[in-house]
Design a protein around this nucleic acid. Structure first.
Length: 219
DNA sequence: AGCCAGGCTACCG
DNA sequence: CGGTAGCATGGC
């Protein structure tokens, strides 16, 4: 077994399943525990059957845009606002005035850019008509880069695409796997070539990396 | 008071 | 190609 895969097993022993991707309707129940870092455990731990419908799938896609360089609690505020205004549906996003959209997502930061990005991805999403997008198609949407594309594919469409983020790079360095010259795709390939190509594994590994790195003291 | 957070685009050399 | 300024809010 590869070193990467071994590290996964250690993380999996050390932490409980993270239950990603977070969904609004699975919040505010008694099962939810807030951690000191502001992250939340126990959305649907060990249950990889989400999203179970189109509404949940669309919420994940919007969350993937909103979380760009942004702490998750701020994303949740934006999502709650959208939910209150009945904007967690493609048709509503298409219809809503850009100014109202900007205002709803304000807590997530970069609201001017992100409002436009959300309009873009929504138009793209509706054009798919239930088809699963390719990675290249997703990347053609302005506002969707490597990480956002992989997050959408892995968590909304359950495609085996490993997600690389800042925590992932930090995680590799902390485990003495140097990544200085490595590009996004290099790192993605490093993971994908060293663990079984399984969606639940990809989902859980990424979530565990984020959780583990959040708990590291900042240096 | 800074610094940072689950990036991306545009533009530079 | 690789490198970086600009984008913005909220929490610590």
């Amino acid at each position: 077994m590869s070193k990467i895969h071994q590290i996964y097993k250690i993380l999996r022993k050390q932490y409980s399943p993270q239950g990603w991707w977070p969904l609004l309707e699975l919040r505010n129940t008694k099962m939810i525990q807030h951690t000191k870092c502001g992250s939340i455990q126990g959305y649907h731990p060990g249950d990889y059957s989400f999203p179970r419908n189109e509404k949940q799938k669309f919420e994940i896609i919007l969350g993937a845009i909103l979380t760009q360089n942004t702490a998750w609690p701020n994303v949740e505020k934006a999502l709650q606002n959208l939910n209150k205004e009945n904007l967690l549906a493609p048709a509503s996003i298409t219809r809503v005035k850009i100014q109202k959209l900007r205002n709803a997502i304000r807590p997530a930061g970069y609201f001017n850019q992100k409002a436009a990005y959300i309009k873009n991805i929504t138009k793209f999403f509706m054009s798919l008509k239930d088809k699963i997008p390719t990675r290249t198609e997703l990347l053609s949407v302005k506002g969707v880069g490597n990480e956002t594309a992989d997050s959408i594919l892995l968590y909304a469409y359950k495609q085996p695409e490993f997600v690389v983020d800042t925590y992932t790079k930090r995680f590799l360095i902390r485990n003495n796997i140097p990544t200085n010259k490595a590009s996004y795709l290099d790192i993605k390939e490093l993971f994908e070539s060293n663990i079984p190509r399984e969606v639940p594994l990809y989902q859980e590994f990424h979530a565990l990396i984020v959780e583990a790195e959040k708990q590291q003291p900042k240096s």
